[in-house]
Design a protein around this nucleic acid. Structure first.
Length: 311
DNA sequence: TGCAGTGTTGCTTC
DNA sequence: CGAAGCAACACTGC
């Protein structure tokens, strides 16, 4: 479920563990004929070039751009990783047994949570540890770019600003969403070319806190509502990072451990449960919403929202 | 058992 | 051009 907070959590982990290390080798079992993946490591001939180019390079910095992870190397190349639906980057000591990579418990890399790990690519690092790319559904993308022009490539050039950027303010949000006046707000919040980093979970949460129905047309939103979305976009995404990401499904940090944002969902996957919104009036009097969380497919994604307070 | 549902994105179709 | 549908893949849960 990697959205901005999960990708940021992984990026911070990498920054802590792999800066300064060299890449001594790369292994993969990916091999697809899918033309859309011809410029990624899933393509055999691309992987050959990739392996040659990253051989013996040193990791000098790690950054995040929207939901992309950029690992900058000392040869002016950048490894770009997009986790898509089920991708993880895991750091630790692994062993290769029976054609499969497994965490080496003797070396302090415990078997991760009760889910099967599908390691499809492994970087062998100069400290004898590994950076493993684990991706059940194999949607993930790993490619190599020139550092200097990385942001001008098709992978990154069409991304809108990220709500956690300091200068992302009310006028930025207004200007960005106004590009899709007829769009449903949930869909527009998730459109990476409009605003980058928000996906299905966080859009549901942001709209619940903002008391806005996910199907509201952008052009119908007033200034107060847009301010509210701005406030909660920053607040909820930051909270997601503070809790180490959302592991309701299979996201894990680089140590294979769960984040905890799923314990703080108010809307996402709470279908049929009672809405927890309550309004506080003067003299501390509180009024509960008493609504129920509904689930509805909105432009192909399942949206969760309160039938009462989200208007 | 079988099928609907799953965090993302990008290509195809209308 | 823009919006919607669907495909990429493999597993989980009802």
């Amino acid at each position: 479920m990697p959205e901005l907070p999960e990708v940021e959590t992984t990026t911070r982990g990498l920054r802590k563990e792999v800066l300064g290390l060299r890449i001594l080798d790369v292994w993969t079992d990916l091999d697809t004929k899918d033309k859309r993946k011809s410029d990624t490591v899933a393509n055999k001939s691309f992987f050959k070039k990739f392996k040659k180019e990253v051989f013996n390079t040193k990791v000098i910095s790690v950054e995040r751009k929207a939901k992309n992870i950029l690992i900058n190397l000392n040869n002016n190349k950048t490894i770009l990783v997009h986790l898509k639906m089920t991708g993880h980057l895991l750091y630790g000591k692994y062993k290769f047994i029976k054609n499969k990579w497994t965490p080496d418990e003797k070396e302090g890399s415990p078997l991760y949570d009760p889910y099967n790990i599908f390691i499809h690519l492994v970087f062998i690092l100069s400290n004898k540890k590994h950076l493993a790319f684990c991706d059940t559904r194999k949607f993930g993308k790993i490619t190599l770019l020139d550092t200097k022009t990385a942001h001008d490539t098709k992978h990154l050039s069409n991304l809108g600003p990220d709500p956690l950027e300091k200068d992302f303010d009310l006028s930025t949000l207004k200007e960005r969403i106004s590009k899709k006046p007829n769009g449903k707000i949930k869909t527009v919040l998730m459109d990476q070319s409009i605003i980058a980093g928000i996906g299905n979970i966080y859009s549901d949460e942001i709209l619940w806190h903002s008391s806005i129905h996910p199907e509201r047309k952008v052009s119908s939103l007033n200034k107060i509502e847009i301010s509210s979305m701005l406030k909660y976009s920053k607040e909820i995404l930051s909270k997601g990072i503070d809790f180490g990401g959302d592991s309701m499904s299979d996201y894990r940090n680089i140590y294979g451990l769960r984040g905890e944002f799923q314990m703080h969902h108010q809307a996402y996957r709470r279908t049929g449960e009672k809405c927890r919104m309550s309004r506080v009036f003067s003299r501390g009097r509180k009024k509960d919403c008493n609504g129920v969380i509904l689930r509805k497919i909105i432009n192909g994604r399942s949206g969760h929202f309160c039938n009462k307070h989200q208007k």
